[in-house]
Amino acid sequence: MAFRTEYYIVDREALPDVFVKVVEAKRLLLTGQVQTVQEATELLKISRSSFYKYKDMIEPFTDTAHKKTVTIACTLDDEPGVLSQLLAVIGEAKANILTIHQSIPINGVADITMSIEVLEEAWSITEIIDALRKLPGVHAIKILARE
């Protein structure tokens, strides 16, 4: 059986602290705020072995998704205006909806899957997701794919 690498997008809140600290240590090194791995790991209170174990396995989800297609899944209340508000935020963000699919609402909620094109002049995907999560009637937003 061939080994296949799989990638996941995971909310930061679900990650163990060590992963978040490894990403931060890499950022500190990259920006020159610290000069050595030893400095970074001491500052962040993680072991050097943890840093080296995970450094090549974790990267932050960055907003380099400009000019990219992002597919997101949303769970919304089945009430008038909720989907309209969601679409208005995407329009305000200057992102382009490529596809949208809504399931038949069950128990007062509907699942929406949409692909949006994030252009140079658009908000970052993080800003878009954060704005969508704040809307009344939106229960969940998750990124399914990014191209």
Rank of each mutant, 00 (worst) to 15 (best):
M1F: 10
A2F: 15
A2D: 15
F3W: 14
Y8A: 04
D11L: 13
R12F: 11
P16Y: 10
F19D: 04
F19M: 13
V22R: 01
V23E: 06
A25S: 00
A25M: 05
R27K: 12
L28K: 09
L29K: 10
Q35D: 15
Q35F: 15
Q35R: 14
L43Y: 15
I58R: 10
E59D: 15
F61Q: 02
F61A: 12
F61K: 07
D63V: 10
D63W: 09
H66P: 12
K67V: 13
K68Y: 09
C74S: 14
D78G: 00
V82D: 07
V82G: 01
Q85F: 11
L86C: 04
L87G: 06
L87E: 08
A88C: 03
V89M: 05
K94W: 01
N96T: 06
I97S: 00
I97W: 01
T99P: 03
T99L: 04
H101T: 12
N107P: 01
G108W: 04
V109W: 11
D111A: 14
M114H: 11
S115W: 03
I125A: 04
E127Y: 05
I129Q: 02
A131C: 09
A131G: 11
K134R: 14
P136K: 10
P136S: 05
G137M: 03
I141T: 08
I141D: 07
A145C: 00
E147L: 08
